[in-house]
Design a protein around this nucleic acid. Structure first.
Lengths: 208, 208
DNA sequence: CGTTTTGCAATACGTTCGCATCGTAACAGG
DNA sequence: CCTGTTACGATGCGAACGTATTGCAAAACG
């Protein structure tokens, strides 16, 4: 599924996705340890141990590379979530909300890259749109999970249904996600232990 | 109080604080509309309508300028807080927690600069220390306000005192501040209305 | 008035940047 | 084999960068 056919020739077979991914990963490394200011084609090329020409070949411009790194980050998080497809709503909710808490160096890298993009999104509309879409998706998924969880509890005692419940679920979702963002930052800068952050999120999820 | 005496000469009186502040304000403008990547001595000089030489004269190096902008931002927030010194603990608590929610363009600028520094702090230890100290201060102040508020309520019914209460107050403070950070970001990227964010914080403060 | 020191503009310099260009090795299809 | 196309390393270029340097106007002090 990773070879393409199109009318014409196709010399020198290489796996484009693979090559692009190598470069994007090197980009993340550079962002994680130097910040987004430290991103230059030369630095990324050095980190990926490839030539500058290769990066130009696959991404064309620095802008495009940085943006590709952003969408790749979002998709990677999305992929991680889909692996929990068979778990109970409450478990999935906790995953959505606490996945970003950095527990090890790898998680730290991911989240510091993510924060770099968040800051960039303030002044960069393309990045902003990618992150906004991701956030909207997470919010909607949270609402769905909260409603599913509530439905599984409400066998006996019927609760208020309809718009009120929808509104409450939306507010719950927003509060959970906003809290998770704030806690993530504090863990990242080592003001808070990962376990404490997760415990706070668990207790918050538990109150739903 | 803004003229200094020291043994020796002192030609050409100018207000150093004032000059520094003009430049720092221009730095904030540049950060707010171009991000921290857009900060160069030339850009800041243009925004302040002064020469590059002046910036060098007052700050020496770009590093020092950026760091001065960070400490100035923290002090400015601190100054805003001190104006509420005579209000009730509950009011002050709400202020600490919701002051950063951007309500207008000026607030938007302040908070986008603040987020730029947050991202920078991940890879820059001097900035990290300044922000860490500010965060610690805010957290301690929150704990104090929560305890003061509780004490004012607990005339009749005595509550659990001592370590348990301290621990609970600390966790409350952390949750409030983390939630405020997350909500602030969402308002900044226009995923949330300022009024909604403030309402959520008010209801959270109200439950203490 | 003359000396000395500060405040700052101007500019020169070496580095690093993104990007365009060119050359070539490798391979698919005829 | 030959031809056409791709992959991509190498290099050059102009712009922008941070900083060091230089020079001079203005003002305080003797």
């Amino acid at each position: 599924m990773r070879t393409y056919w199109y009318p014409g020739r196709m010399p020198k077979v290489v796996d484009h996705e693979e090559r692009r991914w190598e470069i994007v990963y090197a980009l993340w490394l550079v962002i994680a340890e130097q910040g987004i200011e430290g991103v230059s084609l030369r630095h990324v090329a050095a980190a990926a141990d490839v030539s500058m020409g290769r990066i130009q070949h696959y991404f064309g411009t620095k802008e495009a590379l940085v943006l590709a790194g952003c969408t790749a980050l979002v998709q990677s998080a999305h992929g991680g979530y889909q692996e929990t497809a068979e778990a109970a709503p409450r478990v999935r909710l906790l995953h959505v909300v606490s996945q970003q808490i950095p527990r090890d160096d790898a998680g730290r890298m991911g989240v510091s890259v993510w924060y770099a993009y968040v800051a960039k999104s303030i002044n960069h509309s393309a990045v902003r749109q990618v992150l906004a879409e991701a956030r909207r998706g997470a919010e909607e998924e949270c609402v769905r999970l909260i409603q599913a969880h509530r439905a599984s509890l409400a066998d006996g005692a019927r609760r208020a249904a309809g718009d009120d419940a929808d509104q409450a679920a939306l507010e719950q979702a927003r509060r959970l996600l906003a809290l998770a963002d704030g806690l993530t930052l504090r863990v990242l800068v080592r003001d808070l232990e990962p376990a404490e952050a997760v415990a706070m999120l668990e207790s918050e999820v538990g109150r739903i």
